[in-house]
Design a protein around this nucleic acid. Structure first.
Length: 603
DNA sequence: AGCACGCCGACT
DNA sequence: GTCGGCGTGCTC
């Protein structure tokens, strides 16, 4: 009887495909192979080997890995990841393996230990990165996961002093990544740095996985497979008895809750230097002026002292509104407010890109007093230039970056005394490098229709505060200065913020107390997506452990979406149900795509 | 996913 | 008359 290999691919087909293994091959479960699939030679992963009838089967084409890179422990973890994220097994495997090596460098499989569980640690506060470095230096081996390639590069540099650091992220060549994987597997390298694609890199017993900047959404970037570095790290560390470490200025509510219920340990130093906060109420003043008198004064004083100012804006676009009836001009097709650029006098939809003529009267009340609403970067810049005509001012935001080289924009911002920018501009400033950080209109941020709005607003304000010198200032212009996120930043009080935030999450049944999934429903031509989404929602309601919300029209993503709330077993309940109803819906031209634990989703 | 097989518009 | 558009369907 010939040997048959069951192979999974990165394809939306759940089941494996079977092939005959050529006689002279040495093949093991977990190895990558090239196999013919619908005419194409595609990479897949062997998930099972068995004796069987190969009469109707095609043979495997060639080996991609000379030896399997994952042992049974790692394969079990991959199966857990795929099940927990409702991702395809093949897509999950292929995303978490290093690039294949064409050379003869044969990485050995490290024997993964299963030791006693170690309580994960969360490092917050000043000096958290130094504390992490010390622990990494002491560990027998460590894997450091950054949210993005830039972060991985920075950490590789920081760790260089311990010697023998390899990088496993796509910021280095495929050969270096594969070689790095082999070096940690064989023990030749003690330290590895990467992004979430390195989550399965082999580690010896007593090893450590560190996730830096844990709160960053980039730890779960959009796109398949939808895997969060934090969640996989916690699961892997528990399974293999590894030490798990996390650093964050402002951790996710999910991780903080673990420190509350004892599933993680909090490592927080005593409070240190912190900027003095001024709260300014913009009501009545800020319709025409971006800066309230207290903020204008703070800017003037900071400039006089020869220090730098960062003005954080929360939105890129102003909208056009009526002074008389309050009506906001919206896109007829997409129903969202049109973006208004006062200087260019243009009005355009950010979703469908449709440009509209500037109306001279209000479409609702025919009033003549139409003007800009909301402090976009452009409007703030105009106001600040008028006020501080002789100061070097730069904008740093995606809108200003359009058509400009990244390095020129960065150089301009580095030379400026006042930088106006969005969240991304924080990268320009090191800890304690600012004299003043100010939030022109954070109410926009805190009032977003997203249950994570407070967490995100808090994270941004805290990150800005950390970049201000201890004797510097923080100004927050808010109509709602008693908001707990603002109060917590003012008082440098992480505990206070999470106490309030977790109470809110608990009362409304949001993560981390319940889990969420968003089911995207799209219809092929001629199929009724709305009816399909409604049928899906109805079918899922049969499971009373699930809270199924009525289908809503998708915005950025076309089609419809159905939000489902459940407990820890959400994917285990949703998976089989989707497999069942998904098939019958697919026959009617309706496609369903699931995202478990969404990081960025309005709700 | 990716690739072929299908049936309708602008070219050698 | 073909080349190719991408809508639809299937993959060991």
């Amino acid at each position: 009887m010939p040997l048959i290999a069951d192979v999974v691919f990165d394809a939306p087909v759940a089941h494996p495909f079977s092939y005959v293994v050529p006689q002279d091959w040495r093949l093991a479960t977990g190895q990558r192979v090239i196999a013919p699939l619908k005419g194409a030679a595609r990479a897949g992963v062997v998930v099972a080997l068995r004796d069987g009838d190969g009469a109707r089967l095609k043979p495997l084409a060639r080996l991609l890995d000379r030896v399997p890179l994952l042992d049974a422990t790692a394969r079990a973890l991959v199966e857990w990841i795929a099940a927990d994220t409702l991702s395809g097994l093949g897509a999950t495997y292929l995303a978490l393996l290093p690039p294949p090596v064409p050379s003869d460098a044969v990485p050995a499989v490290a024997t993964r230990a299963t030791a006693d569980a170690v309580t994960p640690r969360l490092l917050v506060g000043a000096g958290r990165e130094t504390r992490l470095l010390e622990r990494v230096g002491d560990a027998p081996a460590a894997l450091v996961l950054a949210p993005d390639i830039d972060g991985a590069a920075r950490w590789a540099q920081r760790l260089a002093r311990f010697g023998g650091v390899v990088r496993l992220d796509s910021g280095v060549s495929d050969g270096d990544r594969a070689g790095g994987w082999a070096a940690v597997a064989s023990g030749a390298s003690r330290l590895a740095v990467g992004t979430r694609s390195a989550l399965l890199a082999p580690l010896p017993p007593g090893g450590m996985i560190a996730v830096v900047d844990e709160q960053e959404a980039a730890h779960k970037p959009p796109g398949r497979p939808r895997v969060h570095a934090r969640d996989v790290t916690l699961e892997r560390a528990a399974r293999e008895g590894l030490a798990a470490l996390f650093t964050a200025a402002t951790p996710s509510a999910e991780l903080w809750q673990r420190t509350v219920d004892g599933r993680a340990r909090l490592d927080q130093p005593p409070r240190g230097a912190w900027p003095a906060t001024t709260l300014a109420d913009p009501r009545g003043i800020a319709r025409r002026e971006a800066l309230t008198p207290p903020l204008a004064r703070a800017v003037r004083e900071t400039l006089a002292a020869g220090r730098r100012v960062f003005l954080a804006v929360s939105r890129l676009h102003a909208v056009l509104g009526c002074d008389e009836c309050g009506h906001v001009v919206r896109c007829a097709r997409c129903a969202i407010a049109l973006a208004y650029a006062p200087a260019a006098r243009t009005l355009a939809c950010r979703l469908c890109d449709q440009a509209e003529a500037l109306p001279s009267t209000c479409p609702q009340c025919t009033g003549r007093r139409l003007g800009p609403f909301g402090w976009s970067a452009e409007r703030v810049e105009q106001g600040v230039r008028r006020r501080f005509p002789r100061t070097r001012i730069a904008r740093y935001d995606p809108e200003a970056a359009r058509g400009r080289r990244a390095d020129t924009q960065r150089a301009d911002a580095a030379a400026a005394d006042i930088v106006i920018g969005t969240r991304g501009a924080l990268r320009l400033f090191g800890p304690g490098s600012l004299g003043l950080a100010a939030f022109v209109s954070p109410d926009q941020l805190l009032g977003m229709p997203d249950f994570r709005a407070a967490e995100r607003g808090f994270a941004l304000m805290w990150a800005a505060a950390e970049r201000v010198r201890g004797d510097g200032a923080l100004v927050v212009q808010s109509r709602n200065p008693t908001h707990y996120a603002i109060e917590a930043v003012t008082k440098q009080d992480l505990d206070g913020f999470y106490a309030r935030e977790l109470r809110f999450r608990s009362e409304l049944g949001y993560p981390p107390f319940r889990r969420l999934a968003v089911l995207g429903v799209t219809a092929r031509a001629g199929a009724d997506g709305r009816a399909g989404a409604a049928a899906l929602a109805e079918a899922l309601r049969a499971d009373h452990a699930l809270t199924v919300y009525p289908p809503a029209a998708g915005r950025r993503r076309r089609g419809w979406h159905v939000v489902v709330k459940g407990d820890d077993d959400l994917p285990r309940r949703l998976g089989p149900a989707l497999a069942e109803y998904g098939a019958s819906l697919a026959a009617r031209g309706i496609m369903v795509e699931a995202e478990v634990d969404p990081v960025e989703w309005l709700s």
